[in-house]
Amino acid sequence: MSARSNVMAYAMLAPIVVLLTIFVVWPVVYAIYLSFYNWSFYTPPIPVGWRNYVNVLGDRTFIESVGRGLLFAIIVVPTQLVIGFLFASLVKTVSGKIATILKVSIYIPTIISGVIASIVFVLIYNYQGGILNAFVGIFGVEKQAWLGNADTALAALTVPAVWLGLGIGTLIMLAGLVDIPTSYYEAADLDGASWFQKTFFITIPLMRNIFLYLLIAGFTGAVQQFELPLVMTDGGPLERTLLPNLYIFQHFRNDTYVGYSIAAAILLMLVLGSISAGIFRVLNSEKAVDG
């Protein structure tokens, strides 16, 4: 390890380390610092200890928004996993052109922006001329204001969320399915195992890590969803679609004293961050065993 090789390595690492320091590490440190202060852009910071955190934890709107985020994720993630798993199992059994068409089709929604998805789904849910009302009309159901009605708004937001996230999960599961040796299934076939038996006793146990990863990545992602409610409903009606990040964002825009919003963001980060770090550790240790 010569001094020369040190210089070369540091020169190559400098850009990424500098950028990460300015745009990730500094904001994190700054966030932790500001969360203990009362500060707006034009005043000197006044230390307030844990008051911002206490205020956040005592804020019913925030706590409710976290609960709503969890509920949202509980609807979105399992739906994605089940549809994705069924579809991946299907794609695995076909080959060639058809498999490519299926894979490409399911992945296309993934590349569509949250804004465009919002615009399209708002039109689908439209009271006048929306295709959903036309569809339920066939079965004699009355027209609904899907996004305007407090009872249906959150459920209505789950559909574009599932739609946007389905592709990546499906393809990850497909990659996992393809990795399972066919000999396992052949042995099960000889014993006369049914599709359900093979799925529950071979496929699902062997895909444990993939499910775990998708479950947690999907869960933290869904709880943090906020483009869809921002564009589609702006949190309404009656705060029924006010997910935690949207609440923090709105609070930040309306309150020049940013300490409160930052404390809320940090509290949410602590919960979600520890979940993702945990899953990373599990995945990494498994890989070490595989060699």
């Binding site: 690492l13 990424i16 380390v17 990460l20 300015i22 745009f23 990730v24 590490v25 500094w26 904001p27 994190v28 700054y30 966030a31 500001l34 852009f41 933290t220 943090q224 906020f226 990040n245 923090i248 964002f249 930040f252 940013v258 919003s261 930052i262 963001a265 940090i266 949410l268 980060m269 979600l272 961050g273 993702s276 770090a277 990373f280």
Partner: peptide
Amino acid sequence: LWVYVITTMFIPGMAILLTSFVVVT
């Protein structure tokens, strides 16, 4: 350096969104 770089992977965007705005300002 590796730990320093890789730790940033676990920081959710929202946690730094607000202060990133303050930083770029």
